[in-house]
Amino acid sequence: MSEAVAQQPTRTPAELVALVEALIFVADEPVTSKVLAEVLDEDKGAIAAAVEQLQSEYEARDSGLQIREIAGGWQIATRTEFHEEVRKFLKTRPSAKLSLASLETLAVIAYKQPVTVPEILEIRGVQSATSIKTLLDKRLIVAKGRKEAVGRPIQYGTSKEFLIQFGLKDLNDLPSFEDFEDLVQ
């Protein structure tokens, strides 16, 4: 038994912060604390503290970047106030906005998921086939099995992409549906 025993990494807190930063940077999508903890062989508490430290460091020096919690993970992104310059550099235009009908359909799916096409029709009072296709194409919604009802209609729900595109930590991050009631009346 000459093999070295897997040793607990001895890192200073500052090193851990730097490592977490490196990993969040290379990840192409939000990386969860769980994954960071596994990869770095640290407990989740240490990771959470490191992320928090990283966030305050970015803020303290008015960085052009920010650490955001999106879709249950961490992401490095540019700060909103630099969007004009970033866009100019990237030579991109804001992507096409969803139509009113698609946004409504998406809202129904987000709050009623899993939901079928007839149920969406009932709420919106209008056929939503085109909107559903658009949302599927944009991968904002996904089929989530079939409902055990006549015709076994497909049920739809929102995707991880939805969380990412709308800057949500998770579905609970959506404003509560009951809150809209106060706005209406």
């Binding site: 409504e104 998406l106 987000a110 709050y111 549906f177 809209f180 009631e181």
Partner: peptide
Amino acid sequence: YEKFKTAAGML
């Protein structure tokens, strides 16, 4: 419906 419309505005 109006609640969903408001939700759409939020989105």
